[in-house]
């Protein structure tokens, strides 16, 4: 089983997790920029966070044979803090980087005016930088937040197939399907979705335009939930091909719209331990100056 986890916060995870993920078949991840648990108080804090996502975390993942990409944005929670608003001015620089495959996570947390302003501006930035968008839906008042999200996506005029609306459930999936956006599901130990409910949704609506993620972070979560969902799909009668469609080809198709996915090293089954570039080895000895 080859797995692409389209939403996981690896900065919060250990190298044990990377090893277990690789053993389970995870070969690619997308790490969306989000909240860190502790609210940030300055723009500089975001600079270091974004640099870490595009620098150290990519390097760390590569050492475990996993291709790491990121989505960059000012998250909905911190969109409400005026001290963080300057992050919007940083985004054009980051949204040009190779490892950035979408704008995200954007959307609503508490459905405030500030959140909406920041959401709209970032949808516009996605258009300006030719990137798809990862939209977070709120945990509180989710159905209303999802409907408002879809209205705003339609108003800004971004193509629905370039938008994934994430953290969906039985109550919110249909409106997203009707809008033509991608449906994202986070499978968690005891909140959001679980494997059995996920399988029932797939049986009902089919395998197109759907992405399943672990959204693992510093909370109670499990970076192998993608693999467990794949096992649940097989147990329910889906084929290996179906599992590959949902857990690999769908995220490749969605994030591939950025033109920036770099999967050559992991896709070809390359020996990552023998990757000379990752060891910093020059292909020729350094010029003796």
């Amino acid at each position: 089983m080859r797995i692409f986890d389209p939403h996981i916060h690896m900065t919060s995870r250990t190298t044990d997790d990377y090893e277990a993920m690789h053993d389970a078949g995870v070969r690619a991840v997308v790490e969306p920029a989000f909240w860190l648990g502790q609210p940030r108080t300055s723009v500089g804090s975001f600079v270091d966070y974004f640099d870490g996502l595009l620098g150290w975390e990519r390097f760390r993942a590569a050492q475990h044979g996993i291709a790491h990409h990121a989505t960059i944005a000012l998250n909905p929670k911190e969109a409400n803090d005026p001290r963080c608003r300057g992050v919007l001015d940083l985004l054009p620089r980051y949204l040009e980087k190779d490892g950035v495959v979408a704008v995200g996570e954007v959307g609503f947390d508490s459905m405030t005016r500030e959140e909406e302003d920041v959401f709209v501006r970032q949808l516009e930035l996605a258009g300006e930088h030719d990137l798809p968008v990862l939209v977070h839906t709120p945990h509180r008042d989710k159905a209303a937040g999802t409907r408002r999200t879809l209205e705003i996506v339609a108003q800004v005029g971004i193509a629905p197939e370039r938008v994934v609306v994430d953290h969906l459930n039985e109550v919110t999936v249909d409106v997203v399907d009707d809008a033509g956006c991608w449906a994202g599901f986070s499978v968690y130990p005891d909140t959001k979705m679980d494997e059995a409910r996920m399988v029932r949704i797939l049986q009902r609506r089919g395998l197109e335009r759907v992405m399943i993620n672990s959204a693992a972070d510093w909370g109670r979560s499990d970076p192998l939930k993608t693999w467990r969902t794949g096992q649940a799909m097989l147990a329910a009668g889906f084929t290996e091909h179906d599992v590959d469609h949902v857990l690999w080809r769908n995220p490749v198709a969605f994030y591939g719209q950025s033109g920036r996915l770099l999967l050559d090293d992991v896709d070809a089954g390359a020996d990552y331990a023998g990757n000379t570039l990752q060891r910093g080895e020059p292909l020729t000895p350094a010029a003796q100056g």
Binding site: G55, F59, L277, Q278, R279, G280, E281, P282, Q288, G289
Partner: peptide, 17 residues
Amino acid sequence: TNDARLVAAAMGPYAAA
């Protein structure tokens, strides 16, 4: 940093000089 790509590039002729 602990990024081997950066450390290796940093130890080139400029550092030597």
